[in-house]
Design a protein around this nucleic acid. Structure first.
Lengths: 143, 143
DNA sequence: CCGAATTCCTAGTAAGATGGTGGGGATTGC
DNA sequence: GCAATCCCCACCATCTTACTAGGAATTCGG
């Protein structure tokens, strides 16, 4: 019941792409350094995210990765489901259980509770919160 | 991000103990059969739950396991945390992140959302729902 | 067209988690 | 004493996780 390291890396990478709201592609090496992620591992993850349709890329000298759509249309849930596989509490119908088991209903509730967080948090939200945090820190620092 | 098979077994075992609200201990073999769980594996799980203080046991001819406290004072979260280890979304302070990362806050929210389900669902609740389901099924069956 | 920079693709791999199994010792009730 | 049960420890096969290696394909500046 936890998000894998790979999942965290994926989130951080997409966050990095979101916070620099630029159209030019960002190189793997830069993302890796900025977010402290092993570069070759990140390569795999970004490829997966591209395959899922969340990122685009360009090769060659000035290549790199970019968001395939605006940051307010990509959610944390999207990314986690893409790299960590499902986001369910339990495999759906679970064969060997009796017909009136109370558990499937609970798994449903769990899943809805999770979804309320991950599917409602976009990367635009995260960037917004990050900017606020930073502003407050700078303010404190000046006093 | 899913509950292990071991976790599910543990829940089903405690549910089995809860639904027969009897003081006499229930044998491992019976629980294993009723809930379709490999017996030797279940032995391990029950030992772990006893160690965690949720179950008690008695050896010998008439031995078995029983709830260490009433079913309305054992939650799903208790059991899952005991057998699956932590129930956190991410390891807490995550060293290599910048100070104003927006993620820790999100993990907090996720954890609270999870907790709202698993720490508020007691085995008494589960038994209650199971009884209602069964009653409804019997009713339909009679029509 | 050359060559440097970059993404893309296919493997491989070491360590740990998962989902068990087996054998026998310790208690208990009769 | 004896049978039934829990208790404990070790083992094992398979899968997942978190990477790493090496090179092919593409792009761009010249």
């Amino acid at each position: 019941m936890d998000v894998s390291v790979k999942g965290e890396y994926a989130l951080r990478a997409v966050f990095e792409l979101s916070r620099r709201e630029r159209p030019e592609p960002l190189k793997i090496a830069l993302i890796a350094e900025a977010q402290n992620i092993p570069q070759k591992f990140l390569e795999m993850i970004l490829a997966q995210l591209k395959h899922g349709g969340f990122l685009g890329s360009r090769r060659g000298s000035d290549g790199g990765y970019f968001l395939a759509r605006p940051a307010d249309q990509i959610t944390v849930g999207d990314i986690l489901r893409q790299v960590d596989g499902s986001f369910q509490a339990s495999k759906r119908p679970f064969e060997d259980e009796p017909p009136d088991s109370p558990f499937p209903e609970m798994w449903d509730r769990l899943e809805r509770a999770l979804s309320c967080v991950v599917d409602r948090t976009t990367f635009a939200d995260l960037v917004e919160r990050w900017k606020q945090k930073r502003a407050r820190r700078v303010l404190n620092w000046q006093i």
